[in-house]
């Protein structure tokens, strides 16, 4: 196993951890989405590292990276759509106030 793979995986792990912290701790929808973006970024590093250091001949890894980037873009678009609708209806996108669905 090459040490470079570990460098990349540790970076991915750290970004994943920061992202989880952000997604759980932030009260604002937009900040929360930034946490999710960081989680996905961690996944991206791992995918590229697996392609480079384990299977450089398989371009399905590249494909997976493109799909994750798509997911990031889609998450942003839908998230902001929801944010706009909620802001218009309730005047804020604070997650503490979004308790309508709580039983």
């Amino acid at each position: 196993m090459s040490p470079d793979l570990l460098v990349a995986l540790f970076t991915g792990a750290a970004l994943f951890g920061i992202g989880v912290y952000g997604a759980l701790s932030q009260t604002n929808l937009v900040m929360l989405m930034m946490g999710v973006e960081l989680i996905l970024a961690g996944a991206l590093v791992n995918l590229v590292a697996f392609w480079r250091f384990l299977h450089p001949d398989s371009y399905a890894g590249h494909m997976f990276v493109l799909i994750v980037m798509t997911v990031m873009a889609v998450e942003m678009a839908v998230g902001f759509g929801v944010a706009i609708a909620r802001f218009r209806a309730r005047g804020s996108v604070e997650m503490e106030e979004a308790r309508e669905l709580k039983g």
Partner: peptide, 21 residues
């Protein structure tokens, strides 16, 4: 301060990072 459930979040974040590492 724009954050809530700080201790749980830090625990979860550190746990996730350490676990993956």
């Amino acid at each position: 301060d724009m954050s809530h459930q700080k201790r749980l979040s830090i625990l979860a974040g550190v746990a996730a990072a350490v676990f993956s590492a």
